[in-house]
Nucleic acid binder design. Structure first.
Length: 364
DNA sequence: ACGATTTGACCCCG
DNA sequence: CGGGGTCAAATCGT
């Protein structure tokens, strides 16, 4: 166990150091755009690895891997991973009185992601974020042209998982869905993903397709066809962090004491740029793959974990029962579909011991 | 038959 | 009192 920690720390350190070095290189004005892009990607990679170690699990961003979009893993970390919020959530769990609902609402970790869907087909919707959601309401919101969808974890009753999310389609850009997550998943069913080879088969893709509708856009009237397109050319981004606990914007991703603010700013700039570049270059190089029937199929690695907990996914997916964190994110095969981009997305894979089923003590 | 979604009613807060 | 969030009965889909 101690060894595990040591290893994690070493990994963390090396990743951070590497990131630092890469960042230095990035600041070299003489480097070519391509080089810079690679550097950015590598930096992202190191951050992700570091995050993985720190979190011992996936952040919501990581979860996006399920959506093929892995590439845009966000630099931000989430409040949900912080011990503080962990405690808050635990509180919430402990006192599940209906009257506390509103109080809980205030204290629960909350963060927003912007999910952009650029399918071009006009068919899209909230993507699978790796968890099983059940819609429990929809409401027209004042000033918003689209209704807001309310979702809660499918395992709310079975396991008392209090995670919920709101999906609001953007007024300005209908291709953007603003997803606000609340609370952490405490369910153990969301053994996400896993993609696994099983899914790269036609059966897998088909299977998954047929299971897809537990995720629907608020005003969707086109669910059928949407299911088919839902994974194509979608793009995800994490937008903001916790709203109520501002002090925890980077709760689990604390850099060494040295100039944190500077680091944060750096991050923003760097990632903003990288996002842009990645969008341009990546999408460019990926699109063909997405359009290809054969390769696109292999991109169907996004699977709702709740549907796979029996058959497959166990080998690649490890979840921590109480933390709501999925420990291993399988590397999207989109990587393999991208011969032009030399990205080390193994970062997404978390170094975690599958035999270590309960990482609760990680927080204790 | 069962689980998910829809949708109007209801509750709480500001 | 109105708006946002949740509940729960009705409905739908498989």
């Amino acid at each position: 166990m101690e060894k595990t920690m040591d290893t994690e720390q070493n990994t963390l350190m090396s990743e951070l150091i590497q990131g630092k070095e890469l960042t230095k290189q990035l600041s070299n004005p003489s480097s070519s755009p391509k080089t810079r892009q690679l550097l950015i990607q590598k930096i992202l990679s190191t951050y992700e690895k570091a995050l993985s170690v720190l979190n011992s699990g996936a952040s919501p961003v990581d979860r996006k891997l399920n959506n093929n979009i892995t590439i845009l893993a966000s630099p931000y970390s989430f409040p949900k991973c912080s011990p503080t919020n962990e405690a808050l959530d635990q509180d919430c769990k402990d006192q599940c009185h209906s009257k506390d609902v509103y109080k809980k609402r205030k204290t629960m970790a909350r963060w927003t992601e912007q999910v952009k869907v650029c399918s071009g087909t006009g068919l899209e919707g909230p993507l699978d974020d790796g968890y099983c959601w059940r819609k429990y309401g929809q409401k027209d919101i004042l000033g918003a042209s689209y209704p807001r969808g309310y979702y809660r974890c499918t395992h709310r009753h079975a396991q008392g998982c209090l995670a919920t999310k709101l999906v609001q389609r953007s007024d300005d850009d209908p291709t953007i869905f603003e997803v606000t997550y609340r609370g952490r998943h405490t369910c153990s069913q969301n053994t996400r993903l896993a993609i696994s080879s099983a899914l790269s088969t036609k059966e897998g893709a088909k299977d998954k397709q047929s299971r897809y509708h537990h995720q629907q856009e608020p005003e969707d009237k086109v669910k059928q066809s949407k299911e088919f397109m839902i994974h194509f050319g979608t793009e995800l981004k994490v937008k903001t962090e916790d709203l109520d606990n501002k002090e925890e914007i980077f709760p689990s991703f604390s850099f060494p004491q040295t100039s944190i603010t500077e680091t944060e700013n750096m991050e923003h700039d760097i990632f903003k740029d990288s996002m842009m570049e990645m969008e341009n270059n990546f999408m460019g190089s990926f699109s063909p793959s997405f359009l290809s029937p054969t390769t696109s199929e292999s991109n169907y690695f996004s699977v709702s974990p709740c549907h796979m907990n029996n058959s497959f996914g166990l080998d690649q997916t490890v979840r921590t029962p109480e933390s709501g964190i999925t420990e291993i994110i399988s590397t999207p095969n989109s990587v393999t579909n991208s011969p032009t981009v030399d990205l080390d997305f193994s970062l997404i894979k978390v170094d975690f011991d599958p035999n270590f089923p309960d990482n609760l003590d990680y927080f204790s």
